[in-house]
Design a protein around this nucleic acid. Structure first.
Lengths: 143, 143
DNA sequence: GGCTGAAGTTTGTATATGCAAATGTCGGCA
DNA sequence: TGCCGACATTTGCATATACAAACTTCAGCC
């Protein structure tokens, strides 16, 4: 109470702090899969829709195309994904190894969810999540 | 509506998206000062408490000491801050140039605030900010 | 008084992400 | 048919941030 940060009323500030802390939690939970959180999300996305073009991954994950290229590249090196150039798009498909790894990835994701939900309380967590998602949508529209 | 992201109920995901979007807004607003948002916050922090040890900056900004070292280092190169080694801590003080730049920095900060507040609506913005800040505090305690 | 450990900072290295430019591919039009 | 602009992706480069190890300084204890 005595030491509220000077920046507690700045959303830029708090949002970045929360994102860093959640990323560090996510890294811990996904560690058992050998993947970083972002790589894990790419894997889940591609397993859900095999053959997805890279640009679609970019849109679903709200990351730039170049970032997606790097992520997929690394997963390809680990033999978890394959890329196929089709026309001007690049279709990405999971390998058998990816299918095998998927349950562990999904379990880690569930643990992450459970972890921050426990820390915030179920209602607060749900509310913060939707508010944050709505904000992301509005910000995205304006840019 | 038709295309809600699969990840809209994941706070890790939304928090990172919002943080990226806010960072990009902040970069635009702080651009006139020639500083990145983080550098601008360091400058404001040090102008507010001249002689602050680096570790205190680290705590106020919720960044690691090494990150603060890099930020201060660059501001020192630009003749905006000075470092003085006192015992085992490093005291950081603003230069005259920093004092001169400070109003522009604060103005940019106000513009940033106004910008996201306009996009979200005043109540929603305030509520999201406090909820986010509370979450950051809880996450920090648990780590 | 000298050692030992803890605290504060810096340095080396690694990762995530983005922007801008380059590359490759398609569609339409002269 | 061949060129030109638009789209999808990749590549080169830059920045932000962190972790771990090294370095410095102090504080207490023998």
């Amino acid at each position: 109470m005595a030491t509220e940060s000077r920046y507690c009323n700045c959303l830029f500030f708090s949002a970045n702090a929360v994102a860093r802390l959640l990323t560090s939690m996510a890294e811990e939970e996904f560690a058992v899969t050998g993947l970083s959180p972002s790589h894990a999300f790419v894997l889940m996305t591609v397993c859900h829709k095999p053959g997805l073009p890279a640009g679609e991954i970019s849109r679903e994950m709200q990351l730039t195309p170049s970032t997606v290229t790097r992520l997929v590249e690394k997963l390809e090196q680990r033999k978890l994904l394959e890329r196929e150039s089709v026309g001007r798009s690049t279709r990405v498909t999971p390998t058998a190894a990816a299918a095998e790894l998927l349950p562990a990835v999904k379990a880690a994701w569930r643990r992450l969810h459970a972890r921050y939900t426990a820390l915030l309380g179920p209602e607060a967590a749900a509310q913060l999540t939707t508010a944050t998602y709505e904000a992301a949508k509005k910000f995205e529209q304006s840019s």
